[in-house]
Structures are given as C-alpha cells and as structure tokens.
Design a protein around this nucleic acid. Structure first.
Lengths: 195, 195
DNA sequence: TGATAGTCATTGAGTGCTCAACAACATGGT
DNA sequence: ACCATGTTGTTGAGCACTCAATGACTATCA
C-alpha cells in the first residue's frame, strides 16, 4: 500500500490523495481538503494555546473551567445538575467530576444534594466564583476578539457559524453522554454517523 | 460591574455584549460573535474528541503523535531536527521532547546526534513507525472526512481555509507581551507562517 | 415484591501537557 | 581567547484528561 507519488512524499500526510483512490476503499482527502485540514489544525492549536495562555496567565483559570463557570452563571439560581452541566459544557461526566472538585477547592463552586433525585448532585456557583468570572471576562473577551474576530469579516463570521454548526451536529453518540429523550436533541445523530 | 441585562443572564457568558460597552474599556463580543464563538467551541471539541477517539481506539495513537509521524514521514530521509519538527507540528520544545521519548519507547522514532550542531538531536522515523502510520492513515482519513468534509460544501471548505489562515497568521502585538520587545507572544512566529 | 437494567456521579490509575529550571553548546563582539 | 548572550533540547513537578471500574440510586416490569 504505497501511497507515495514522488520523492517529496505527499504521503501519509494528513491523509493523502492518491490516484489509486478508486481502488482503495479509503476515501482520502483531496488536495484542497488536505490543505484546509492542515491549516485548520494549525489555526485551532494556536488559537486555543493563545486563549488558554491568556486565561492562565491573567486569571489562573484553565479555559475549560472558565466554561463551567460561565454555564453556571447563566443557569437559574446559578446552579445545575452535574449531568446537565456536563452536557452544556461538552465535558464527560468524569472530566466534569474532577473539574468541579478542583473548583470546589478553590471556593468557586459548591456541591449540593439534589432534592429530587438522591443520586444527583447540583453544582452551584458561589459569589466568589461569580466575582472571579466577572474579573476574568474582560481579558478573555479581548483575547478572543484579537485572536478571532478582529481578523474576520462579518461574512466570514457568518460562514464560520454555518460551518461550526454543521460540524457540531451529531458527530455520533459519544461514550455514555446522551441523556434525554431522543427528541430534537441537536447533538444526537439519527442515522448518520451512528456507530 | 454588573453586566447582566435581564433575568436570563446573558451575562458573563462567553464575554457578553452590553449597552455599557462604550464606557467599559472592554471590547465585548457582539451577539453574533458570541454565537459564533460558542458554536465554534462546541464544534471543535466534538470534532477533536471524535478524531482523537478514533485514532486511539483503532490504532492506539494520540492525535498529536500522529502529527509527528506525518511530519517525519514527509521530511527528507524521514528525519528532522527537533526544533524544526516542533515548529512543523506546532509543539512546544518541551512537549515534543516528551512525545518523542514516548515514540522512541514504542520503536517508531529514533534519536540521532546532529552532525552539524553538537547540541542538536535529529528524530528519525523508523520502518516500524512508517508502517504504523500507513496502517493508521485510512481510518483517520475516513474519520476526518465523516466529521468534517462530508458536512461541508466546497465553498465552505474554501472559506474555512481562508478563516483558518487568518487565525493562524502570526499573533498581533498585544499587551501581555510587554516584557519582550520583538516577539513575546506564546505563538511566536516572526514573519508569517514560516513554512 | 423482587429482579434486571439503566442512570448519576465519583474514583484511581495511567498518560499527556505546561511551566520553570537547567545543561550543553553556539555565536558575536571585544 | 574570553565572556556575555542566545539557542537547543531535556528534565521533573504538578495539573488536566481519559478510561474502566464502582457504588448508589431509580425505573421498569413481571
């Protein structure tokens, strides 16, 4: 299965294109797709590293934790069931559990027993947590603006939204993350990539 | 600094928009930008989790390590100086050093002394490493296709490339880079995307 | 009622990443 | 030749994430 074409090895790169395409069962990426994928990877890596770095430097908060604080700050009573919080912030239950434990240590979040389900836990944002979020938000906003929106036209922003929506749509039911009824849940995939 | 507008708390979300904008020094995100940023975050998280998961499950390779193997496979003699490899794969030197150590343990890469610079090390892809890459590539390609390109029109792909290019482009001079004149940003990169 | 299955959340081990500190060598000027 | 400075790459500590296993509870249904 030699995929090489010439010395320059446009090889197994990020999934190379090959004239043998028709025969191989694999649907390789076209050169344009390949280019898009690679620059996309570079862009996201730099972007997240910049965003993460700013939050870490200026507020000592990992970006993931910031997301959690945000979701809680928007919820009724600034509190959410763990599983709902996990879904809202795209965290696995395990990851969330560890994360909330850390946030609790810092005094930004507290855990309460859920009154309606004795298995459940409710995470609630404390005043200290809210204050921290408030303090961190402007710097984060500025960073996101500089890294992303200052560089894009408004047309590009709207296409970015389209693209992201398409990609975010049901990548398939991840390990044990699906929760509610199968109703219009945008994340749940119907036939598609189910697997 | 109450940023709330109403009960629904369109608050410190991902950097909320506020009528007090003109007064606050902070350049908050507009509602459209906010929407774009959030769905973008969701999309990338799901995407990377799907890609990472596939590689891990089917080939037991973290995506970052896959990138390293790819860069090496494309280099002359399937070998690169550590620092060049770091730049090509968007790894920090430290991260790369750790990663190559693991790859070496697996027998996929070997380290050689650089003949021209006695500080230097050269990472070389072994035959076993190449074979592993070859085996992993089709599955990875398929996954990227399903997660991304099957969902996008070719127009969208080209805009995605534009957007990514803009975001990947060298970081703007920003406040945090005070200490050092020239570069200073976490993303370095002098001229452009040297490459 | 009791048995089975499913859900909620946590835990610990293993692994990867970041950050700061460091050793070794290279480079440029005096 | 010498010293200051910059570069290359490694190391270790500490934190974050994943995966599999577990305990505790709920739901369903015979």
């Amino acid at each position: 299965m030699t995929i090489t074409r010439d010395g320059s090895c446009q090889t197994l790169n990020y999934l190379s294109y090959d004239d043998r395409m028709a025969q191989s069962a694999t649907r390789w990426l076209t050169p344009e797709e390949q280019r898009a994928w690679r620059i996309f990877l570079t862009a996201t890596q730099r972007l997240f590293s910049a965003v993460e770095g700013q939050l870490q430097r200026d507020s000592d908060i990992p970006h993931g934790y910031y997301e959690i604080l945000v979701r809680l700050s928007e919820a009724d009573g600034r509190a959410l069931r763990m599983s709902q919080l996990a879904e809202a912030s795209t965290f696995s239950k395990s990851r969330l559990s560890h994360a909330v434990a850390r946030l609790e240590e810092r005094g930004w979040v507290e855990r309460l027993d859920c009154p309606t389900d004795r298995r459940g836990q409710v995470a609630r944002l404390t005043d200290a947590g809210y204050a921290t979020l408030e303090a961190a938000a402007p710097g984060h906003a500025e960073q996101v603006r500089r890294s992303v929106f200052d560089r894009l036209s408004s047309d590009q922003v709207s296409v970015l939204t389209e693209i992201s929506t398409a990609i975010a749509a049901g990548p398939r039911p991840d390990p044990a993350s699906l929760s509610d009824e199968a109703s219009g849940c945008p994340l749940t995939c119907e036939g598609e990539l189910a697997e």
